[in-house]
């Protein structure tokens, strides 16, 4: 099969290169020959109907699928040219570099401070002053500092849903990742909190390479620079968000974004 000569990233720096990725849950194949480049310090959105494999794809990028028994990967995922599925790759280092925010906010039932400090602590930072600095910086980057600075010792579960999700983002930032994976981070939030999270993504793209899965096409259009459309485990189309939403080349993409199915 001849690949189309399509270079949506142009001259941008590439941070993740996915090459011919197949993914299996036991005997069931969930991803088919996916190849995709993720640009550094840009937002890449993954869209598609439920069960299209976009979340599975996202979770291959930090090897979270490893925790599910019987999964198997074929093809390559290169981060800065290093294949993350090669033998001898340290998964701990990988996940430190590639942070993740989940669909349902999942703060630990601990204090706000301990939630943020959890990552740095397991990576060996013990100095209290240093930890306090990291906590403050991370919360500021996640635009939560002003709301919680006077109650850092309170249980994180006392925060509102939107605050909890921003706390989870801050917690992911605390280990200083380079890439941030977000799995429908706003799908469980009310419109106001959603806007805050979307604004936050806009700010974070200055410093981090972000890959976000979203159900909401307006959201993809608002926050992302590049958009990948998945359907039934295959990558149908990948291009600059502007192109996908104004002038898609594939009919399936057009049908999906115009709401004809999905």
């Amino acid at each position: 099969m001849v690949k189309e000569n399509n270079k949506p990233l142009g001259n941008l720096e590439t941070v993740i290169q996915v090459r011919n990725l197949d993914f299996f849950y036991g005997q069931v194949q969930a991803l088919f020959d996916v190849s995709l480049d993720v640009a550094a310090r840009r937002v890449t959105a993954l869209i598609g109907p439920s069960g299209c494999g976009k979340s599975t794809f996202l979770r291959t990028l930090n090897r979270m699928n490893d925790t599910i028994h019987g999964t198997r990967v074929e093809g390559e995922i290169l981060i800065h040219g290093q294949d993350i599925y090669k033998d001898g790759v340290n998964v701990v280092d990988l996940r430190r570099k590639v942070g993740m925010v989940f669909q349902k906010s999942n703060p630990f039932p601990k204090s706000i401070f301990d939630n943020i400090a959890y990552g740095p602590r397991i990576h060996g930072i013990k100095d209290k002053k240093k930890l306090a600095e990291i906590v403050e910086k991370s919360l500021q980057r996640a635009a939560l500092w002003d709301e919680v600075k006077d109650r850092l010792q309170n249980n994180a579960l006392g925060l509102s849903g939107g605050q909890q999700q921003r706390l989870c983002i801050a917690r992911a930032l605390a280990v200083d990742p380079e890439i941030l994976l977000m799995d429908e981070p706003a799908s469980a939030l009310d419109p106001k909190s959603t806007t805050r999270v979307e604004d936050l993504i806009g700010e974070l793209r200055e410093m981090y390479s972000i890959v976000i899965v979203t159900h909401n096409m307006q959201q993809a259009a608002r926050v992302s620079d590049f958009t990948a459309f998945f359907y039934e485990g295959s990558l149908i189309e990948f291009d600059a968000t502007k192109v996908i939403f104004t002038n898609p080349r594939k009919k399936q993409t057009e049908d999906y974004i115009t709401g004809r199915f999905g």
Binding site: D93, R96, N106, Y118, G119
Partner: peptide, 20 residues
Amino acid sequence: AFRDASLALGATKWETIRTN
């Protein structure tokens, strides 16, 4: 979700079990 969050932060399996 607690295990996932901890693993995604780069904790090993045992660290995750012990602390979370």
